[in-house]
Design a protein around this nucleic acid. Structure first.
Lengths: 245, 245
DNA sequence: GGAAATTTTGACCAGTTGGAAAAATGTTAG
DNA sequence: CTAACATTTTTCCAACTGGTCAAAATTTCC
């Protein structure tokens, strides 16, 4: 760990335990890097910054957000912020990485051994809760998608695809067993994503349309009720009216 | 000052520079303004610029887009572009205005006298076609929503709300007549918006998940088939002994 | 308490951005 | 041809951008 000023961007592989200054004491600025194990304070500050960055990025997107804005929201000066995250991109990447993990958790819990409708219902419910409780994360994700997912393309092309493939297979099995209406499992999943995330991403619109009278917190409960009905009826394996070939 | 008829946004202190005709002539450089009736060439250039701006804004959002980018896509120099649209905001506003009009057309066509399922089916179809044929418009809209719709808040709070209220009433009537499942008409509309726009706004994700094998143009047809099934079954009146109303 | 390490600040920079001015180059009608 | 207008280009700028750096302030550890 000789005193370098700019090192390759390292993710957060917190490794070594405390290390002595040993050879190079000329540790330039930028401390929260690889050798040191990240003090409690550093972690705290980083969290504050990430919080602020989420607030800003989720609204203006990557290019539309400035370090100054983030620093202001975080209550610190720009150079100070840069001390913890040497690059703007790094902040964004950290946010996206953390997001993807929690974002897909509900889908991961989709259980093959469960009852189709119970599983689908609880998936919808959880996704709706996430839209309600983590709207900024949802918008950050949406922003990234709108821009063509330049920073997470491989993530969605590989990890996400694999996960969806797996769950689609489960859905297909259920359909073949006659426990679920025969339909396209991929688009089924898309429709759940779309309808639930809508309440986070298009929140302004939803509120505006519902008007001041009924937009309190009720809209999420109403949405849950409606979506449950839609999907439960829409996907029940009722005998089709002829015409399906 | 003269030759003023519409609301004008004139913050810049710079104005009349070489006004020859005291009559009501062109003010400064910037010709495409009030007085002149807009030549064919001007209209063409403006269209080129708006096209380019749509391309850029729809991906990067307002703040994330630069005039330089738009100018480059439009194939002209920045000052030249500024000659037609004195302000970046003006371009954006024009795009949004044009967008909102066409965007709501399908909903306007929702006909009270038609058959509930026919109306809903064709509405879904049209919205899906728009997602397929005008994905940039959809993304522009989505970007605006994500940012809290700062520039069109009144538009959606008044015009959009009124329109949705009207159509929701129609849906309610149908429900009361037993021709449609009893459910929340507002969330029903939201779900149609969400599921259809998803294919434009999250196009990358959809493609990535579907994989290279089946993402050609087929995805829109598959989506149409799936959504039709979902909504037709999901919204059919509950099992009630009722041959017809 | 004090040296070393960590954190914060202020000054500064090169590149970008939205936009202004004006000169230069068409274009058109008389 | 040429005056009047329309369009384009060149030059320029002040504010903003992401980022650096050294010095100052603060904390940590012996």
């Amino acid at each position: 760990m000789s005193g370098k000023k700019l090192k390759a961007v390292e993710h957060p592989p917190v490794s070594a335990k405390r290390q002595h200054k040993a050879d190079a004491k000329a540790a330039t600025s930028h401390p929260p890097q690889r050798p040191r194990p990240l003090t409690r304070i550093q972690k705290e500050k980083q969290d504050i910054i990430l919080e602020a960055a989420l607030e800003v990025f989720s609204v203006h997107g990557f290019r539309g957000s400035t370090i100054d804005q983030i620093a202001e929201v975080a209550g610190m000066s720009k150079p100070n912020l840069l001390y913890y995250f040497p690059r703007k991109e790094e902040i964004h990447r950290r946010l996206i990485a953390a997001l993807l993990d929690t974002w897909l958790a509900p889908l991961r819990d989709f259980d093959e051994r469960g009852d189709p409708f119970t599983e689908i219902r609880s998936y919808i419910r959880r996704k709706l809760e996430m839209a309600r409780d983590f709207p900024r994360e949802s918008r950050l994700f949406a922003n990234e998608m709108l821009q063509g997912a330049p920073r997470i393309s491989e993530m969605i092309e590989i990890d996400l695809k694999a996960l969806v493939d797996e769950k689609a297979k489960i859905l297909l099995t259920w359909m073949e067993q006659g426990r679920l209406a025969r339909t396209d499992p991929y688009h089924l999943i898309f429709s759940i994503w779309a309808t639930t995330q809508h309440y986070a991403d298009f929140d302004v619109q939803v509120r505006a349309v519902l008007g001041k009278g009924r937009n309190g917190d009720g809209r999420f409960e109403d949405a849950a009720r409606y979506l449950e009905q839609l999907f439960m009826h829409g996907l029940s394996p009722k005998p089709r009216v002829n015409g399906s070939a």
